[in-house]
Amino acid sequence: MIRSFVRSREAILLGALIALVLLVESRFSGFASPGNLAAVFNDTAILIMLALGQMLVILTRCIDLSLASNLALTGMVTAMLNAAVPGLPVVALIALAVTLGVVMGMVNGLLVWKLDIPPIVVTLGTLTIYRGLIFLISDGAWVNSHEMSAAYKALPRAELIGLPVLSWIALAVIAGFAVLVNRSALGRAFLAVGGNPHAAVYTGIDVGRTRFAAFAIAGGLAGLCGYLWVSRYAVAYVDVAGGFELDVVAACVIGGISIAGGLGTVGGAVLGALFLGTIKNALPVAGISPFWQLAISGAAIIIAVAFNARSSAKAGRLILRPESTA
């Protein structure tokens, strides 16, 4: 029943997303055109990937607030390296970005695993540290478009069968995550560790190692997105993606990933990110002031959380029925 409810929650979210698109379309014709929807998807691609990484971490009852700092630091490293050695192949830069991201994720994971520090504290710390490192390596200077090689900037925008490579990468990550979460032992371990850490221990699952894996994978995605972000916007500076970590958490929450862990789906995370992305794309079109845009995004998050809280409360009441009616 909970399972079918989760399914219907995704259905509700999909319905809300379609309604949102149609609402904007009714006022501003052309918003729902395939071309524009593809553009919205492309704009949301990075949010989707980070939300998927964050989802794994949240599934294990942790949280990673350092994802945006990780993204900004790897982005800066690839941009500076590209500016210094323009001949370095982009593939090598991407490999470096992913590796660097994984290492930063592993640092988070190790601190949570071996020192048993609460994840929110660890990643609040690394959020600041990673962001500070950008300043240290760049001296606060920007890497601008003209310093980057053409190949560096071209990859995410290159079109392949009608979609930019950025979108294709996001689609590949979504597919990979669907397999990881639904069809691999590790994916099952994420759900088990968050659903009931004590039971997971008795099942032979190493809770710390599983959380470590979640942090490492999320970090790797943040690294990949670091390159994609900087090359797409063709600029790297200290404050790249500042505050973006909260959008990522918000996308997860809207997508029905339970902050308490153990409950969430790839589809939910993707829809949550798309919902937030659509709002962010539609509001400027509707000519709504940026301040109202923030308030509306915030309201969407609170409504989603209230909705999720209600649904889990209902499940609890059902189990306890004999007591509450007594």
Partner: peptide, 26 residues
């Protein structure tokens, strides 16, 4: 607390410690 992952479906709970046996190439 220690027995079942209550939010997980029955079949996934049963196979949790036996996944290597029900998997092929991971």
């Amino acid at each position: 607390r220690q027995g079942a992952v209550t939010a997980m479906p029955i079949f996934q709970n049963v196979t949790l410690p036996s996944l290597p046996r029900t998997s092929r190439r991971g």
